[in-house]
Design a protein around this nucleic acid. Structure first.
Length: 398
DNA sequence: CCTCCACAGGAAGCGCAGGAGT
DNA sequence: ACTCCTGCGCTTCCTGTGGAGG
């Protein structure tokens, strides 16, 4: 059967030669393109605000808000990069941008230690008091002697957990510094986030504000077309594919990241199937794959009882009309698996966590005489949830 | 108009793990 | 060896609340 083996190798090689991509990195959401369509106004405004950097002066703090996938992060990174290049050309680079994603670094301690680390300091991942880490930060900023532009992306994720005290201290730190200076760019996708802040923080953080409205389907099409021309081989994108991706993503609040992911994975699907043109059916498969990937990634990080609660909802047909019913079911399932159930209060928090993770939709409802409760419903396909839970259980060896 | 349901969700704190400084 | 710090998952106790039914 040596001829069979040779055939497989040859076939596989032939397939991988038939790629639809020229450069798939262009479609990744962390790629910063040379051109950001439909964000000219935001780019101009941010550049204006940050322009004092070139004169070695501290720019105003900026507050940026807009929904996910509206280009906030891309614009900030793009502008900072360009200013940096420009500053180097004119021989003035006394500023240092530091980018932090507060969803990943969601505590005061972790934000501060990441800051110190990006300035070349060292901090253990636990063990010090925050006051000590803050002191080290000041030392580092003083040592650079320039202006540190701190970008706090998804700032709401952190403030929701640990409050806004760190923002207060960061926006005031300049008063305690002799040489260096700090300015803060806060990015959030929670439009009402600003209202919940301490008034002192609000006024100092939003010396300037920039709003990023969602893209509509036409604008998304422009963005996709622009990227696709660099990402794919000519003629590798089938008719209507771009518009289909754009309108699918536009339905989900104009999220450009979604649209780009969809297009990239569709390309990967086409490639895998040995097709040299991306078609709409590939996009449909891509959509399912993306959802399933998102779910299993989230499920993996869930605490044990988080998985149990999710399982309870999935087994009950995907929804509960009261927290009480959910709790009874959850307790039953936990016990049957030999697990001591947690309190209802905790389950209530777990449901909120599942909601932030995008796995369920929870709505507070008032039923008058019959009390106030929460309706919970799965936000994704029930079978995908069950499959992810099963995979995860198997991975844990049980 | 008042009551009172069935919770939501805030506040405080606990025990443990991981680690620093002394 | 000892004290002190944080994050995490969790409990206990608590106050707040929109509206159906009286």
């Amino acid at each position: 059967m040596s001829s069979g083996t040779r055939d497989i190798v040859a076939e596989t090689l032939l397939k991988s030669e038939k790629t639809v991509f020229m450069n798939r990195e262009v479609l990744r959401s962390d790629y910063i393109p040379e051109y950001l369509p439909h964000r000219e106004e935001q780019i101009r405004k941010l550049t204006e605000v940050l322009s004092p950097l070139l004169r070695g002066e501290r720019p105003s703090n900026v507050f940026i808000y807009g929904l996910t996938g509206t280009g906030k992060t891309a614009v900030v990174k793009y502008v900072l990069k360009r200013i940096n290049e420009y500053a180097k050309r004119v021989g003035n680079n006394m500023f240092l941008p530091v980018y932090i994603n507060c969803r990943h670094e969601s505590t005061t301690y972790r934000v501060l230690s990441t800051l110190v680390e990006s300035l070349g300091g060292k901090v253990p991942f636990t063990g010090l008091s925050t006051a000590e880490v803050f002191r080290r930060l000041k030392v580092k900023v003083n040592m650079t002697g320039g202006i540190v532009v701190i970008v706090l992306d998804e700032i709401d994720a952190m403030v929701k957990r640990v409050g806004d005290e760190i923002l207060y201290r960061l926006t005031r730190v300049n008063e305690e510094l002799e040489r260096g200076k700090v300015s803060v760019i806060g990015i959030t996708n929670d439009v009402r986030f600003r209202d919940g802040l301490d008034p002192r923080v609000r006024s100092s953080l939003s010396e300037e504000e920039i709003l990023f409205p969602p893209y509509d389907a036409l604008q998304l099409s422009d963005i996709l077309r622009d990227r696709a021309s660099k990402a794919f081989r000519p003629d590798a994108v089938g008719e209507g594919v771009i518009d289909y991706c754009a309108s699918t993503a536009a339905r989900e609040h104009g999220d450009a990241r979604r649209a780009l992911d969809l297009l990239r994975v569709a390309g990967e699907v086409a490639e895998r199937l040995g097709d040299n043109v991306v078609r709409i059916e590939h996009v449909k498969i891509a959509r399912e794959e993306l959802e399933s990937d998102m779910v299993s990634a989230v499920v993996k990080t869930l605490p044990q009882h988080g998985k149990m609660v999710l399982l309870s909802i999935a087994l009950a047909g995907g929804r509960f009309s009261t927290t009480g019913e959910l709790y009874i079911k959850y307790r039953e399932i936990s016990r049957s698996l030999g697990l001591e159930p947690v309190t209802q209060r905790r389950v209530s928090d777990i449901v909120s966590e599942l909601e932030t993770a995008g796995l369920v939709i929870a709505k507070v409802v008032n039923r008058g005489r019959y009390g106030k409760t929460k309706e919970v419903e799965l936000a994704v396909d029930r079978n995908i949830i069950i499959k992810s839970l099963r995979d995860e259980a198997r991975a844990l060896g049980k």
